[in-house]
Amino acid sequence: MKKPPFTTLVSRAVVLPADDVDTDQIIPARFLKGTQKTGLGQVLFADWRSRPDFPLLQPSAAGAKILVTGNNFGCGSSREHAPWALVDFGFRAVIARSFADIFKGNATKNGLLPVALPEAACVRLELAIKANPALELTVDLDKERVSLPEGGWISFSIDPFAKHCLASGLDELGYILGFADRIKAYEQR
């Protein structure tokens, strides 16, 4: 069950200026009563959508595949509906100061690349995007770097196995099942 491989992403970006964005904001629990993982983009940030200044619904944000945000993104609930909703909305990468553990793991399993960058780099990106919403960023997974608005690159790091899975579209379950004999042996100790 391979997923489309993640290579290099070139896209405009939208800035969500908030820290500790929890998964209850990304998708409120009342939208978790389904049994499918599709179609959740329309309730992404459902309770923030009515705010007139909500960045994701500004015309300039249309088509942006990169979200730029604060620290500890995705904290709280383990709901994988959060990355499902982000991906369904159109995002392929989230650039943040830091990520919550469960969200980060859930994101990479759904082809959504979590990119943690230092505060200063995030601020530079945010200012540049604010000045020019049409600015395109390049997220280069292979070289683990993001283009800077004034030219040049900033590096990020990613777990090598998560990178391998994203880049190849490899599915983790296939990898685990490759150890079926070892699992059986473990169970028979």
Partner: peptide
């Protein structure tokens, strides 16, 4: 510890998870 739904599937299928040591 809590896991996402992909991992729920992993555990259902294999009783195992892929984890980096925290």
């Amino acid at each position: 510890f809590g896991i996402g739904t992909s991992e729920v599937e992993h555990v259902l299928a294999s009783q195992c998870l892929l984890q980096r040591k925290p």
